[in-house]
């Protein structure tokens, strides 16, 4: 493949205002969108702000929206676009803009702090934890999260309704609740924390209408909806809407 010139529109501005600026940039074989953004920085707009770090899809820094779709700049190959196609890059549109392609994602860190941490089991010290693979398999999938917040950005609950940010933790942190609730050694229950109930009552699980956009955009391929959010919804049903499960828990002989 030979080099060619591509037409980019990159959002430039800050919280006071801004707009899409046109750039015509050289593209070479094997390049990703982040390479082109760096070339724009190097040749045409040295003050273009972009957040990036590993360039390998593992740090979750370079989240942006390319042609309207939330994606990692470093994991979007230029070969997926036609040579004549205009490529539009904007910052994440669910969060406050800082400058150019950089947004303020502190909403996510606030939500992270609202999820009670892993509660260590009583009587076990460091190095004494023992777990079976079949017990940790489910939460292990969620540990692949690189915290790029693309799922948080695409989730219509907060993207389209700013006022819901207070009540709704977003898919990433509901997945964190699910991860901890499925963790074989988490002793939250013994500490008086009911993760199933708080998922619904404090983290806004009921706002999720399982339309799977979080799963669609996850660069790690985590099945957020099917493996975290829906199981968490079913666990909340156990607590709040199913008297049969309540009765079963009262008379059961073995712990779950």
């Amino acid at each position: 493949m030979t080099a060619y010139e591509a037409h980019f529109r990159v959002w430039r501005g800050d919280v006071e205002g801004g707009g899409l600026k046109d750039f015509h940039v050289e593209v070479n074989e094997g390049e990703v969108v982040l390479d082109i953004v760096h070339r724009i920085q190097a040749t045409q707009a040295p003050d273009l702000a972009v957040r990036w770090n590993c360039k390998a899809g593992k740090c979750g820094s370079c989240s942006a929206e390319i042609n309207g779709r939330p994606r990692l700049l470093c994991m979007t190959r230029m070969s997926v676009f036609g040579r004549d196609e205009t490529i539009t890059i904007t910052p994440l549109r669910a969060f406050p803009v800082v400058r150019d392609l950089v947004t303020d994602v502190s909403f996510n860190y606030e939500k992270a702090r609202e999820v009670p941490a892993f509660v260590p089991p009583e009587g076990l010290g460091p190095g004494e934890y023992r777990m079976w693979q079949e017990d940790v398999g489910r939460p292990q999938e969620f540990r692949k999260c690189i915290e790029c917040f693309l799922c948080q950005d695409t989730c219509h609950v907060v993207r389209d309704f700013e006022e819901n940010k207070q009540a709704f933790a977003g898919p990433r942190f509901l997945m964190r609740v699910a991860e901890l609730d499925m963790h074989p050694l988490d002793a939250a229950g013994e500490a008086g924390i009911d993760r199933k109930r708080t998922a619904q009552e404090e983290h806004g699980l009921g706002y999720c209408n399982i339309t799977k956009c979080c799963t669609e955009v996850c660069p790690e391929g985590i099945k957020i909806t099917d493996n975290a959010l829906i199981p968490l919804k079913e666990r909340a049903v156990d607590r709040k809407y199913d008297p049969l499960v309540w009765l079963g828990n009262k008379i059961r002989r073995r712990p779950s």
Partner: peptide
């Protein structure tokens, strides 16, 4: 304005 046009977000 609300949603993606909320005042703090990128003006698109």
């Amino acid at each position: 304005a609300h949603g993606v046009h909320a005042p703090s977000r990128a003006a698109v």
